[in-house]
Simulated scan of single mutants.
Amino acid sequence: MDLNILSAAIMIAFASFGAAIGNSNLFAKYMEGIARQPEAQGKLFGQAMILFGLIEALPIIGIAMGILLLFNVI
């Protein structure tokens, strides 16, 4: 049981860390794109929000898998 808790915690931590890095890169490039071409802000915003949703799916899946692993479902 102890290894299940440890592996679930590692899975959730890495998923959250990966999403944090992805979000920081996404919004850094989004701000850079706005600074270079302010007239493209609307198009960049839509694309950034789509990518934000895809990046945020990673920790949600990681948490779900971690909970399943914690309770010995997998």
Rank of each mutant, 00 (worst) to 15 (best):
I21G: 04
I60H: 04
N72A: 06
F52Q: 14
A40M: 15
A13D: 12
L26N: 01
A64H: 01
S24M: 14
A40D: 15
I63E: 08
Q41L: 10
P38D: 08
G42A: 10
G66A: 13
M49I: 08
A19T: 05
L58N: 06
F45C: 07
N25E: 13
I67N: 07
G22W: 00
Q47L: 12
N72R: 11
L51Y: 13
I67C: 08
F17Y: 14
Y30W: 04
I61F: 12
A28P: 09
E39R: 09
M11R: 11
F14K: 09
I60Q: 06
K29T: 14
I21M: 12
N23L: 15
G53P: 03
G33R: 02
F17I: 15
F71R: 10
G62T: 01
G62A: 03
I50F: 07
A57N: 05
L58F: 10
G53R: 03
L68P: 06
I12P: 05
A20C: 07
M11A: 15
G33S: 07
L26T: 00
Q47F: 06
G62I: 00
R36M: 08
V73R: 03
G53K: 05
L70Y: 06
Q47D: 05
P59N: 04
F27K: 03
N23P: 01
L26R: 00
G18T: 02
S16H: 02
F27M: 06
G46T: 09
I61C: 08
A35N: 14
Y30S: 02
F14Q: 10
G22K: 00
G66E: 02
I50E: 05
Q47V: 03
A13G: 12
I12H: 05
L69D: 12
Q41S: 13
A15E: 00
A20M: 09
M65I: 12
K29Y: 11
K43R: 11
I63D: 08
I55T: 02
E39K: 11
G42Q: 12
A57M: 12
G18A: 07
Q47Y: 07
N72M: 07
I61K: 03
L51D: 05
N23Y: 04
G22N: 00
A20E: 01
E39H: 10
L44P: 03
A57P: 05
L68E: 09
K43D: 10
E39C: 06
A19E: 01
I60K: 02
N23V: 09
M11I: 15
E39V: 07
E39Q: 11
L51T: 09
L69N: 14
V73P: 02
F14G: 09
F17H: 09
A20Y: 02
G18Q: 00
A64P: 03
L51R: 10
A13F: 13
L44F: 04
I21T: 10
M11E: 13
I50K: 04
M49G: 00
